[in-house]
Design a protein around this nucleic acid. Structure first.
Lengths: 257, 257
DNA sequence: CAGGTTACTTTACGGCGTAAGGAGTGGCAA
DNA sequence: TTGCCACTCCTTACGCCGTAAAGTAACCTG
């Protein structure tokens, strides 16, 4: 299932995202934790365990119980919001337009691709949630800044920003899943994939005849980087060639009246 | 969190997906349920509650306990696999190429768009899982059949199929979320959205200055269909204009040497 | 008609997010 | 200096979840 980020109290979430924690002198024991520390711990845990991490696990990493976190953060949904935005701060806020928009968009897309590879759990946060945090804004702003330089109108740019964003996310998700597949069971992704397709071939030997066009799609394969596992090569190739098509589409839109 | 479909025993999953239930005369009480009935009930429950439906809810809809389902289906993951593939049977298996590939791809994309609107939970099943079931194959086969007619090589087609698929999924997810946003609390999506952006404007009044390019992106808006809610109009417009860019990109690839 | 297989139930376990209440800390007003 | 009380953090507990285990009753086959 999906964690819907942005489901908590909007005011509280947005305050946490934009204000940071305001430190005053206050009665009571000195806080041993902080929102920042909790968000960092959450990211570390999620990098290892995925979005299905538990509040207990985050607390444990900080030497506290799960309930201690609730002093700083309203709940798991809000924590995910904060983690989501925090990780995005790893990404550049602007790209050079010296060589035009095309290399800049390409760089943006590759940066996102690698980012998702570092933090696969980000892809498991609902991708349709509204943009909320400052770093998230900055990432989209960076892409928008590149594309505005094409001179296309807002109406078209919105579609293009969406298309690029969805495409990179989707492509990254295939490679993420390829890596994670064996994760739980410890199988390498190759083995896991072959186990499934072997069973499929056994049960449905005429598969190629039933879906001839899919068979055609399988032609013309050669690894980009032979040191990478098969599925990763595949995902990388699809990412690159799909991105080229998208960029050509933008170029066509720019060239038109 | 994400339900990873295809995490169960591969043989059992694939047998259920491709073989259907084999009926023999057997000792013991007559089965009151069937895999089909369970899958249908699961789809109905998921249409209402999303992917976070419970086995208890599915059982209840059939007048049984949750545990009764385990006689027919190995677990929730496998049930989701079956539900996923079953819903895909709603989609056409082939498209007319009389007017060329472009209208056919457009129709495919719109059919998918509406399909996701009917079954939003499908978008919450990990999008990167390997294709497993016959109807899922058929849907991709239909798209592949259209695109093979362009004469492009497999290498490029794989990227294109991926790009279209990711784009449609992503675009559909935004509208799905727009609809679901108020769902839990009963707010209309408009109100929910405005509540959030109002708080954001209050806390960060200089937002437009901080992210000027995003502000540019907001220009040039007019509703496609004024009877639709604001956010749905937005999503629909982005879907259509993004798709045009993608199609232009394919056209450019076809025109090239 | 017995035996064994099957459908389905009840009960239970270990996980989850988090509500409620209690213990101890330490700044500040009296 | 004292005592209040806001504060952090803990323990306990509740109601969910998926599903393992074991029991009950139905039915086909010998």
């Amino acid at each position: 299932m999906v964690v819907y980020a942005g489901q908590g109290d909007p005011r509280r979430s947005i305050e946490l995202l934009w204000r940071g924690s305001v430190v005053e002198s206050r009665p009571g024991p000195k806080p041993g934790l902080s929102v920042d520390a909790i968000v960092d711990a959450g990211i570390a845990v999620a990098d290892e365990q995925g979005i299905a991490f538990s509040m207990r696990a985050v607390g444990e990493r900080l030497g506290r119980t799960a309930m201690a976190l609730y002093t700083y953060v309203p709940g798991k949904n809000e924590l995910v919001d904060l983690m989501y935005d925090r990780t995005m701060s790893e990404l550049p806020g602007a790209y050079s337009l010296d060589d035009g928009w095309r290399p800049a968009v390409t760089q943006w897309a590759h940066d996102m691709w690698e980012f998702y590879g570092r933090h696969p759990w980000v892809l498991q946060v609902s991708q349709a949630r509204p943009v909320l945090g400052p770093h998230e804004f900055a990432v989209i702003e960076a892409l928008a800044a590149i594309l505005v330089s094409t001179g296309l109108p807002g109406r078209q740019l919105r579609g293009i920003v969406g298309a690029i964003n969805y495409f990179v996310r989707g492509a990254a998700q295939t490679i993420t899943e390829a890596r994670a597949a064996g994760g739980a069971t410890g199988e390498a992704d190759e083995e896991w994939w072959y186990a499934r397709s072997a069973v499929l071939m056994e049960l449905e030997p005429e598969l190629d005849k039933k879906f001839p066009m899919l068979h055609v799609l399988e032609n013309d394969r050669e690894p980009i980087d032979p040191s990478l596992p098969y599925l990763e090569n595949d995902a990388l190739e699809n990412f690159r060639s799909g991105l080229l098509v998208l960029l050509d589409g933008i170029e066509a839109a720019v060239a038109k009246p």
